[in-house]
């Protein structure tokens, strides 16, 4: 049982200066689990998942990813990042490289894969996210949805065992949200461990094993989607769900 826990966060605290962003966070993620984190803006949800691959440094508590604790040890940080993929709200593709080069950069430099092999693998992942025809274009020539799918493929090229999604659809036009969510759903069906910060409640309902609601730096509610959406135990959660429902109408 304990061996299956791939992310173990214990009593995590983080401050920006004097501002207490994350307050006593405890979270255990099992292998293959799909977790959706939601909450109002400024609740600390992005900061939390950015702590998992050390894009943000925490000041108290511990984060253990696949048995390795995140400390100031740069080698550990790098080892964890090799196995934890991340997808960003703003795609963050490298504009000076083609889509294919975006995908092969890390495998060739970090995994020391031969160029031909890296290209072959990259093309396979691009086919999986249905944009293999765009491989030789530059990111600026692609639509937002295509860029985000390329960013997902870029993360997958490192064969990560865990994927972090930081509001992957928030910067997209409504028509493009679906194509990205479809790719994420396929990924979930393959058994990838996923932590996803999103406001897409439909995605949370169908894909998530667990939905986490955060506000003011704390985890307020943590439940399987059917319980979370039908009878949340906190008034704050209820209020948030009501607001989201009125927005989507």
């Amino acid at each position: 049982m304990n061996q299956d826990i791939v992310i173990d966060i214990t009593d995590l605290n983080k401050w920006y200066g004097h501002f207490h962003v994350l307050k006593h966070i405890n979270l255990k993620v099992q292998k293959g689990e799909r977790i959706v984190i939601c909450g109002p803006s400024g609740s600390g949800k992005s900061t939390l998942i950015r702590c998992i691959n050390r894009l943000e440094e925490h000041q108290q508590g511990s984060i253990v990813v696949e048995g390795t604790e995140l400390t100031t040890n740069l080698k550990n940080i790098n080892d964890i990042r090799k196995n934890v993929g991340m997808v960003f709200q703003g795609f963050n593709l490298f504009p000076h490289l083609t889509i294919l080069e975006n995908l092969t950069l890390a495998p060739t430099w970090v995994r020391q894969l031969p160029e031909e092999k890296a290209k072959k693998m990259a093309m396979e992942f691009l086919a999986r996210v249905h944009i293999d025809s765009q491989a030789h274009k530059f990111p600026g020539q692609l639509s937002g949805g295509q860029q985000q799918r390329a960013a997902i493929a870029r993360a997958l090229c490192m064969n990560p065992r865990i994927m972090l999604f930081d509001e992957p659809t928030s910067a997209l036009d409504p028509e493009m949200i679906k194509e990205v969510l479809d790719v994420m759903t396929e990924l979930a069906e393959e058994g990838m461990t996923m932590i996803c910060v999103t406001h897409e409640m439909g995605f949370a309902r169908t894909v998530a094993d667990r939905v986490i609601f955060m506000d003011a730096g704390e985890i307020i509610e943590e439940a399987p989607p059917e319980d979370f959406f039908t009878h949340p135990t906190f008034d704050r959660t209820q209020l948030f769900l009501n607001q989201i429902r009125t927005q989507s109408i």
Binding site: L55, L74, R81, G85, G90, L105, W109, A151, A155, M158
Partner: peptide, 23 residues
């Protein structure tokens, strides 16, 4: 260059120096 470029680069496992040089 937006900080997201560096973040995306290091999140794929590149070291800080590699990310600086390549991205």
């Amino acid at each position: 260059i937006p900080p997201g470029q560096m973040e995306a680069a290091v999140s794929t496992g590149l070291t800080h120096w590699q990310a600086t040089r390549l991205v």
